[in-house]
Amino acid sequence: MSWHVDALLTGKAKAFRDGEKSAIGKTPATGAVRITTLGLGGDEQADPAHHGGPHMAVHHYPRDHHAFWRDQIGDHPLLDDPGAFGSNLSVSGLVDSQVRLGDRFRLGSAVVEVSQPRMPCWKIEHRFQRKAMVATIIKSGKSGWYYRVIEEGEAQAGDRLELVSTGASDWTVEHILQSIANPKVVPEIAELEAMAECELLGPSWRGGARKKIAALG
């Protein structure tokens, strides 16, 4: 299975709010883009403590979700922008409920692996000037996800995102988000323990699983 890549997107850190910078605004790159273990060439992260690094090298927010947001917040002009949610990839037809932790894809000449959901933060609401978007993302499971880079390479608009292996985990991105981040979802402790020990899952989410175990007591 494969999906058409409409664009690869990168962004520079810019003034965002109260002197704080953000690179959430991404724009389509021209030509081939280098993909390394730390992300796309030319892409920046203003807050390296919470964004970027090998487990968050490439961010994928499904273009399909833009229609959902039009129903939620109206025809906001940002929803015409493939990088509205800070995504590095513009791809349609592949969503959180289909993608599993550890799934591997060929992106141009690179190979990437699903590593964790994207935890939403206040920057989304500030960018759109709409409240309650973070809560809606967690409730709906429409978070998007990150890839780690297994094999470095290059890709460009018009390439295919091709599934090359699956079955490393039964957990979808949506299921992980709901299990760990949604306070109204109470999963089995044994499943949270398995997530906390799963090396495929990014360390921040493994820590989140341990915190939820402690909270459930």
Rank of each mutant, 00 (worst) to 15 (best):
W3P: 03
V5A: 07
T10F: 04
A13F: 13
K14D: 12
F16C: 12
I24L: 14
P28T: 01
T30Y: 00
A32T: 15
A32Q: 15
R34P: 05
G42M: 03
Q45N: 13
D47T: 08
P48N: 09
H55R: 06
H55D: 15
H66K: 02
F68K: 02
W69E: 08
W69T: 06
H76K: 06
G83M: 09
A84N: 04
L89V: 08
L94K: 05
S97Y: 05
G102P: 04
L107P: 00
L107Q: 00
G108I: 06
A110K: 07
V112K: 01
S115E: 06
P117R: 07
P117T: 01
C121I: 11
C121M: 08
K123E: 10
H126S: 11
R127H: 15
K131N: 13
A135E: 15
S140D: 10
W145S: 01
W145H: 09
I150R: 07
Q156C: 10
D159Q: 05
G167I: 05
A168G: 07
T172Q: 08
V173I: 15
E174V: 00
E174L: 08
Q178S: 13
S179Q: 08
I180F: 04
N182F: 00
E188T: 09
E188Q: 15
E193N: 09
E197L: 12
C198M: 06
E199F: 05
E199V: 12
L200N: 12
L200D: 03
K212A: 06
